[in-house]
Each structure stands twice: as structure tokens, then as C-alpha cells.
Design a binder for these strands. Structure first.
Lengths: 119, 119
DNA sequence: ATCGATAGTTCATAAAAGCGGGACTAGCGA
DNA sequence: TCGCTAGTCCCGCTTTTATGAACTATCGAT
């Protein structure tokens, strides 16, 4: 089976990160993967708080996050284990990713419980 | 003549900013506009350090930066005066924009004098 | 005023990217 | 082996992007 491509940290680009995170669905996915203590599978996101996403579209979103260097995906049995790579990227990009996610959190806070049910 | 659209600060979105800055040409434009003490016209960028950009393409890039809220464009006689809006955005987005530009600066530093003829 | 030059926008078209349904592949458990 | 589940791939459709060409607006000179 075709191996999944993961760029080396030094091949990750700012451009790629910004592009990947310029889509709110991908941001929700990344945030959830980061928040969760255990790896998330793709199908955990078939329905987000606000919408349903077709499998093929979701697969594409994961590919973009993966190839931007933001997540690592490992096949595990029938499904996939997705984990964040933010830790790895920090030495190279510093606060960049954190600032982006924080900015989204701000923006969404008044809109919907997009990802903070905080109940 | 059609007036130029500039979003109010509260209508600026993280998504729009990230998207606008996920293109290296637009990043170079913004950085130069920020560095310069006087407003820059669009045609100042017809040829960047590394490539030549058609007028129509450039016009589109400016529109995207403008509508993302990153720059302000005022018609001044025959040309345009473009100035950054980062100052205005800081209360809302904090370090976001600065971090993005800093990350690009890092990345480019080994590649080319992308935008620092600083002569 | 009119002409000509310059700065940008708009239009048309072709290339590329995105979305999503459906078929396909891989691993797991009867 | 069959059936189920998780993802990927392929294809058609729509949207976006890039760019040359035509158009609009303003300035300066005559």
C-alpha cells in the first residue's frame, strides 16, 4: 500500500502551514487532534459540530494537514492514528502555530461552540 | 468609479489573513509596504526580486490583501497609495501577523534577498 | 479641449484546485 | 470466505487562479 508522505521538519514551509490552516474545517480537525490525549482517526470527524463532511473530502483535508507537516498519520489496523506534530515544529516555527490557533479560538468564541463546549 | 472595499476591523477574519499570506508574492508585497515609510503603489511590484508579475495578476493580489484587511489602498491621482493596516489589527489579532512575517523571514533568510535590498 | 502616457481594473479564457459520490483496497472478526 | 469498517482513488462538476487584452481614469503637455 502506498506509504503516507510526511515532510521532514526542515521541509515544512510557512506557506504550507498557512494554507492548511486557512480552512476552518482543517483547523477544527487539528485542534481536536491536539486536544485529545489519544490519537484520533479520520472518521472521528465525519460529522463536526456544525456540519457533515463526506469521507472523500475528509481524506483530502487530512492529506493537506499531513503534507503541510502539521499531523502524523499512522495506519493502525483498519484505521488511522493521527497525532499532532506541533511539538516537533516548535523549534523551527516558534509560536507561529500557537498564535494561529489562539486567533481562531478568539474569533470563534462568540460564534459557536465550534470546539469549545467548555461546559 | 467603483470604490475599493476595505473590511472593518471586526469583519477581518483569521481565515482571510492566513489565506492572503499563504502566497509568497503577497507576503513580499505586504512586507515591503510595511517596511517602507511612504505608501507604495501597485506598480512598484511589477518586478519582484525573483520574478516579473503581470499587472492583472498584481491587481488581484492587492485586492486579496485589501479585502483580507491587511492593507489600505487609496487612489491618489493616477496611482494608488497602499499602506499597512497591521497597526489597526493588532488589538484584535495580537502577535498573529508579526509571527507570520517573522516565520517567513526565517524561512527565506537562507534563500534569497527576497525583500531586503536595504541599500 | 485634446492627445498621449501611465496606473489600475475588468473581461475572457485556459489551467489548476476543490468537492463529493461511488468504486476500490486493506485489515479485522465471525 | 464473507461481511464490515476505515480510508483512498477516480471521475465529473464547480470554483478559483493566472494572464493577455481591452477598458477607464487621471495627469501633463500642447
Amino acid at each position: 500500500m502506498k506509504p503516507l508522505y510526511h515532510p521532514a521538519v526542515e521541509d515544512v514551509t510557512v506557506e504550507g502551514i498557512l494554507y492548511a490552516l486557512s480552512n476552518p474545517v482543517r483547523v477544527q480537525i487539528l485542534k481536536e487532534i491536539m486536544r485529545s490525549n489519544s490519537p484520533k482517526s479520520c472518521s472521528d470527524f465525519l460529522s463536526l459540530p456544525d456540519r457533515v463532511i463526506p469521507k472523500s473530502t475528509l481524506s483530502q483535508h487530512f492529506k493537506i494537514l499531513r503534507e503541510a507537516g502539521l499531523i502524523r498519520s499512522e495506519r493502525k489496523g483498519v484505521s488511522m492514528r493521527n497525532t499532532p506534530r506541533c511539538q516537533e515544529l516548535r523549534p523551527r516555527f516558534g509560536r507561529l502555530i500557537g498564535e494561529i490557533l489562539a486567533a481562531y479560538a478568539e474569533e470563534y468564541s462568540a460564534v459557536a461552540g465550534a470546539d469549545s463546549p467548555e461546559s
